[in-house]
Write a protein that binds this DNA or RNA. Structure first.
Lengths: 194, 194
DNA sequence: AAATTCCGTTGATAAATGTCAACGGTTTAA
DNA sequence: TTAAACCGTTGACATTTATCAACGGAATTT
């Protein structure tokens, strides 16, 4: 059950996990199943868990004044989910996170998470790197959103995260790109013709 | 000369700076002046310095295939500048950073910076927090870019970073918002009328 | 002091994207 | 197994934003 998580940690740090580390992680990260459309987090709640996806797919989104959903993040196997800002500052989240497919995760509470972050060397190292990479990725996505056309952004996504296109329906992808499903549909059919 | 930096560090960490810390910082962060339009970093270079602005204003931008500049970040007094991704991975930067005004900074090399990050407690703590906050800010800006109209984004900027509007001309602000200077001009004149 | 560049604005028009409505084909749920 | 909801596509049209060109005033350089 914990194999994919352990493998992931080993892949993302230089420090070796001790046997105690492994035991501690197994005890603390508990398996949980989320049904399709089940919430992991709802707007207004504080994000209290740190969650690693073993199998499945989830999406993070906001709902605007008109009731329109804006997808801000998509996550599949071997990704972490949760609102780090809410967790860090213990403030209500502005996001909703729910399962798009039947999803299996390993999750732990914030308090246990904090313990590991300082006690297990590999853990701290890993999360610092992930945070860093996440910040870089955000910067890139922001540049894309500001300087590229919808079509260029779609091509970028196709190139960099082809998995997403297979796992999520087009209207979700469109929202993630910041365009309507109709516009995405037109971009796709025109691209095919070329 | 180093007062604003020391004050900044004290404000952004819980750990107290020892006298040795202060001495070390003073020795390592050297003063440098950048003239208007002088580059701090050019596309293709590796970002080799960690820079704190004492007085002045800088901008970070990319240049696209058509030669159009896209401003990705604006920085004034008491902000850090530099491309963290390039510094961290030692890869060529895709950004240009230059001084918009006559600018005074305190800067240190990457190697000295790395030393401080591990040796001075307050320093490590501070940068972890800054990185975190930066990631959160990016996430927000990204959401804004994807889900809001140009006018809403401008109003947001006006509310959250009014300093920018006074320090940078409109065509820079427009680029930062991902719109043309003409569109920004129209947004502004229409808003005034309301 | 004159010349030049920079800056913000405006108008006319084009291009990109959104909105609304309708349709058939799936998939999902009763 | 029937009804309902979901999904992608398409058409007509509206809205937003970009593009190109021109202008006058301010700031900067010569």
């Amino acid at each position: 059950m914990h194999e994919s998580l352990l493998k992931y940690i080993r892949n993302h740090s230089t420090t070796t996990l001790t046997e105690q580390d492994v035991e501690a992680i197994k005890k603390t990260f508990v398996h949980k199943h989320y049904r399709k459309r089940q919430y992991l987090l709802q707007e207004g709640e504080v994000s209290k868990y740190v969650v690693f996806i073993i199998k499945g797919a989830m999406r993070q989104y906001t709902v605007d004044a008109k009731g329109i959903e804006h997808v801000s993040r998509l996550s599949i196997e071997n990704w972490w989910v949760g609102d780090r800002e809410s967790s860090t500052n213990l403030t209500p989240s502005i996001y909703n996170i729910d399962a798009w497919e039947e999803t299996d995760v390993l999750q732990t509470t914030l308090t246990d998470f904090a313990k590991y972050l300082s006690h297990i060397a590999a853990f701290g190292e890993m999360f610092r790197k992930l945070d860093e990479r996440h910040a870089f990725a955000m910067q890139k996505r922001l540049n894309a959103a500001i300087s590229m056309t919808a079509e260029q952004r779609y091509n970028d996504l196709e190139k960099n995260y082809p998995q997403f296109l297979q796992r999520f329906p087009q209207h979700i992808i469109a929202s993630y790109l910041g365009i309507t499903k109709e516009t995405l549909s037109r971009i796709r059919t025109q691209t095919v013709k070329k």
